[in-house]
Amino acid sequence: MTHFKKLRALVAVAAMSAAFGTFAADIDMNANANDIAISGYDPVAYFTDGQATKGSAEYTATYKNAIYHFSDAENRDLFRADPTAYAPQFGGYCAFGVTMEKKFDVDPEAWRIVDNKLYLNLNKDVQQRWLTDISGFISNANEIWPEIKAVEASAL
């Protein structure tokens, strides 16, 4: 696709977005201004490598209107095969924040896998509080998330 065609396609998408407003899927995912989720960290690496690993723009996949970066093609392909297995819970917002009916951004280094699900926190200090009652906070957040997932973070 030529540069001109790409530009026309982007303008068309922007016009449609302006005409129809923001869709719920756009606001239930935590992504930066460039639609990059988890600050470009590889969601699969948390499971396969047991650590937070920065992804590369060379390996990407889109899920719920957010772009995920991966450290290699294998991780990207694993994600594409089953994104719900690897995408962070609560749209990638802070798991503890959801318990307070808030959508906070996260530090990709403040993470935990619980029952094969990825949870992220605002920062490591908040994570220390969250770790005091993980199951209780997850249960509480699971009840709250359906009520706030379609609400803009700034409106909470």
Rank of each mutant, 00 (worst) to 15 (best):
K103H: 10
N32R: 04
T48F: 00
A150S: 15
P146E: 10
D72K: 08
M1L: 13
A66F: 04
G50E: 07
V44M: 02
P146A: 06
V114D: 06
F104W: 14
M100H: 13
A14M: 07
M1Y: 13
N123K: 03
N32K: 05
T60S: 07
P83K: 04
K102Q: 14
E74P: 00
D105I: 09
T48Y: 02
A141Y: 13
Y68V: 07
K149I: 07
F47P: 04
V106R: 08
T60Y: 05
H3I: 09
Y41T: 01
D35W: 07
I27F: 00
W111L: 11
A45Q: 03
L10A: 07
I38Y: 02
V151Q: 14
F137T: 04
H69C: 01
F90N: 03
D42N: 01
N75R: 10
D72L: 05
Y93E: 01
A155G: 01
H69I: 00
Y46P: 04
F96V: 08
K54A: 13
I27E: 00
T84I: 07
D28H: 10
L7M: 09
A95T: 08
T2G: 15
F79Q: 07
A141V: 09
D26S: 10
R112L: 15
S39V: 04
N65G: 01
R8S: 08
A25R: 10
K54M: 11
